[in-house]
Design a protein around this nucleic acid. Structure first.
Lengths: 234, 234
DNA sequence: TAGTGGTCTAGACCACGTA
DNA sequence: ACGTGGTCTAGACCACTAC
C-alpha cells in the first residue's frame, strides 16, 4: 500500500467518523506533514484522492473543507454499486428478491435487441447500506451471455460479468427520471406512496455495441445524486 | 500563465498538428525535462492536463501514448415536450420572475469559482408550453461575463451568451436528483407539495475550464427524462 | 502579518516493460 | 540492463485570505 493511499484512507475514515464536521476545515497541509511525517507532495497526493471522491474542496488562502454527504454514484464514470459504496467506505449488502429465467417483454426486447423467444435472467435486488434500503433494482441479462446465474453471483452482477465472465463494458446508455413511488416500490424501499424516487434505466454495452444487460434502478432520493460531465458536441 | 500550462498548450498544439501520430509515443518525461528546462514535477503537471483531456494515456514501463481522438460522452440531453413541442409548433414561452444583481451565496461561489465580492446576475424563470409550466429555473451569471442583462436577453440566456456574447461552452457538469416539491416550487410549478420533481443543477464551462454560468432547474416529472451515454474510463 | 493552498526545483528509489 | 512512469523527499517562492 502506497503511503499516500494509507493517509487518504485514514482521513476518509476520520471524516466518516465525524472527526471533522461538514463544512469544516481539515488540518492544513503543514499540519498533516507533521502528523504523518511525510513530505508535502505525499500529503497533497492523499488530498487529491479525497478531492477526486468529492469529499473535500480546497480553497487557496483558506484551507481544505469537508463537502456534503450525498453518495455520488457515477461521478467518475461507470462503476458498480459495491464499488461506489466501498469508495465511500460504507458497509453495503445485497438481497436477492427473485432470480428467474423469463421471456422478455417488449421493452426489454428492444433494450437488449433480442427477440421474444430468447430467454433472459430477471434479477430483482435490494441494495442496502448500513442496513437501510438505498436501491431497488431489476436487471435483465440474456441467457446467451451467462448460461447460469447462481444466487451468489447475482449479488454483484457487475463484478461477475466483468471479472469472472470477462465481459468488458465499453459504454452505457442512461435514462434518468424522477417518479413517485408506486405500491411495489414503496413496499420494497420502505418509503411512502408517491415519495420522490430517482429512476435510472441503464443499458450496458460491450465494445462491439452489443447490449450486455439492462437494469431498472430506483434510488432513494435523499441519498443519491447522479453526476456527469458532458462534452459539447463540436 | 503558469509554466505547466504553457507546456501543456505547446504539447497539445503539437499533437493537433500531427507531430506525434496516433497511438505513438510522446517524448519521455526526461526528454521533456531537458527540452523545456523544468523539473520533473512541472512536466508531470503538464501531462496531467493532457491526461485530463483524454488526449494521452500513460503506461508505466512503456511511456505516454497519444490516444484516439474525441469519442467522449455525448448526450441527447433533456428531452420531453419542449423538443416535441417545438417540432409540433406548439407555443413555448418564457416568463422572467426576477432578474437582479446579487452577491453569490457559498454554493454559487463554489460552483462559479468566484469570491463573495464578485456580483452575479440571478435570473428566475418559468418555461411554459401551451400555457402550462414545465420548468422552473434559476440561473447565475457573473457580472464579469455580461455587464448588463436586459430582460429580453434573459429569456434565452443560452442563446444570448453563445450567439451575441460569443462565449463558447465547451462542457457542462450535471448533477441530477429527484426531489419533492417545496412550497416555492409547488407554487411556481402549479403542482402539489412533495410532488416528485426532476432537479438538475448544471454548470457550464468555457474552453479554458472557467465556469460561465450555473443553473438550477426543476422539471415537471411527467414530461421530462434525462438521457445520456457515458463511456467507461478504464 | 501569518497562514493557506498553488506552483516549482533538484534530486532519489521503485516496479514494470522491453530488449 | 536500461528506460519508463509512479512515488517520495526537503526544500522554495507566490497569490490569496483573514485578522
Amino acid at each position: 500500500m502506497k503511503r499516500y493511499e494509507e493517509i487518504a484512507e485514514e482521513l476518509i475514515k476520520e471524516i466518516n467518523e465525524g472527526v471533522y464536521q461538514q463544512q469544516e476545515l481539515l488540518p492544513s497541509e503543514n499540519k498533516l506533514i507533521e502528523r504523518f511525517k511525510v513530505s508535502r507532495m505525499t500529503v497533497r497526493q492523499a488530498l487529491d484522492v479525497l478531492v477526486g471522491k468529492n469529499m473535500v474542496t480546497k480553497k487557496p488562502g483558506k484551507g481544505t473543507f469537508v463537502t456534503g454527504q450525498k453518495i455520488k454514484s457515477f461521478s467518475r464514470g461507470l462503476i458498480g454499486f459495491s464499488e461506489s459504496a466501498k469508495m465511500q467506505n460504507k458497509e453495503s449488502d445485497t438481497i436477492i428478491l427473485s432470480n428467474e429465467l423469463v421471456a422478455p417483454n417488449d421493452e426489454v426486447q428492444e433494450l437488449l435487441n433480442i427477440s421474444a423467444s430468447e430467454l433472459v435472467y430477471r434479477v430483482e435486488r435490494l441494495r442496502l447500506i448500513s442496513g437501510e434500503v438505498y436501491i431497488y433494482e431489476i436487471d435483465f441479462i440474456p441467457l446467451e451471455y451467462t448460461n447460469e446465474l447462481p444466487e451468489e453471483k447475482a449479488k454483484s452482477l457487475f463484478k461477475y460479468l466483468e471479472n469472472e465472465m470477462s465481459y468488458t463494458i465499453a459504454f452505457a446508455n442512461y435514462k434518468i427520471e424522477a417518479i413517485g413511488a408506486d405500491k411495489t416500490i414503496a413496499k420494497h424501499m420502505q418509503v411512502n406512496r408517491q415519495a420522490p424516487i430517482l429512476f435510472v434505466q441503464v443499458t450496458h454495452y460491450l465494445n462491439d455495441s452489443r447490449p450486455l444487460y439492462a437494469s431498472y434502478s430506483y434510488y432513494r432520493h435523499e441519498y443519491y445524486s447522479f453526476n456527469s460531465t458532458i462534452q459539447r458536441n463540436v
